[in-house]
Design a protein around this nucleic acid. Structure first.
Lengths: 112, 112
DNA sequence: CAGAATCCCTTGGGATACTG
DNA sequence: CAGTATCCCAAGGGATTCTG
């Protein structure tokens, strides 16, 4: 149980996992990432990225110092390791969706 | 991504997963479960159990109507399916612990 | 025992405006 | 573009007390 709590401490909350998902397919810029993670505000994204970076899950890289500065975020190896967690969630989430659909289309006993 | 969000909606938060872990090894009474899930208050446990039951993850069963009434909570098959998620979290959590330990005992480059 | 009720504080997080 | 700063509300969650 303890390891599970540890993981939950680092990956818990509304945004951590979705952000990691957004970075699974390669580095992304701040703005791009914000578009990827539907609904997140700049404030939250900034805050969460900071935490994920501090825990070594991802790496922040300043690409260009120009006036419109360019920064990219890349998943660290350590961050990529959470992939199985995401996969497990995805599988269960699909199971859930199927379950809901079925319940809606087959009110065999309950309703009436 | 959508399925992941769905799963997060049902399993997210501080207590849902720990409660499910507590029920993995068989049915438990309210009080027993509260002891199992370190730190949870009766209020939270009650609230979370209600939500988990409504989503079909577990089943509430009144064993005895006596004065000291007895109620047990059992993981439904649907709830057992989240086991892979918990396992993935546990594995990652252990990886994390190992990483922290190593960082603390081997300040090779960084420190000094 | 199993939980509901009340009170209250803390945190998450959205909106908007501003800066390097 | 990549954030930061401020304001502010709603939800999360703890402590305590009460009841069937």
């Amino acid at each position: 149980m303890r390891p599970v709590r540890d993981a939950l401490d680092l990956l818990g909350g509304k945004w951590k996992l979705p952000i990691i998902v957004g970075l699974l397919h390669g580095p992304k810029r701040f703005k791009h990432l914000q578009r990827e993670v539907a609904g997140i505000t700049a404030k939250m994204l900034s805050k969460e990225l900071k935490e994920l970076e501090q825990n070594g899950l991802l790496v922040r890289h300043v690409e260009a110092e120009g006036v419109p500065v360019a920064v990219t975020y890349t998943l660290a190896e350590y961050g990529e390791q959470v992939f199985p967690v995401i996969e497990a969630l995805r599988v269960w989430g699909q199971l859930h969706r199927a379950r809901i659909m079925q319940a809606a289309s087959a009110p065999t006993e309950a309703a009436t």
